[in-house]
Amino acid sequence: MISLNRFAGSVSALLKGLGVTLNYIVHPKRVVTREYPENRETLTFPERFRGQVVMPHDENNDHNCTACTLCEKACPNGSISILTTKNIASKRVLGQFVYRLSSCTLCNLCIEACPFDAIRMGHGFEMAGYTREELDLILNKKEGR
């Protein structure tokens, strides 16, 4: 025998579920789908959208990377290779930040591993290329620091 209390609880839970979906249908602004190719210029993304990894550069074309290779170790696919070099003071600095987009799963682990905020998830998403080599990217703009 179903107790009345449990019955009322079930009915209120069902109504709550109906309320959640009704809320979606009466608020068209909550639609998350973005239409694509016509409006490529005006396309906006949510803040936390994860596109391909980028390395932000400041106005002097400098970046925050110290070539500590923590991101390289964090990457489960081996998509990142840090090629180091030495500067004039024979200090170890970043030579080339090699990022293989073809094997990247956009998992965000390298960004979490980075202690200097040198890399972040960008909003680029058009990742098709004709050869595999086109997807081997070098993220830093100049060698050294």
Partner: peptide, 13 residues
């Protein structure tokens, strides 16, 4: 269309 809007999608456009 209705299913899409319930799931915060657009449906066929």
């Amino acid at each position: 269309k209705v299913c899409a809007r319930f799931q915060a999608r657009l449906g066929p456009t």
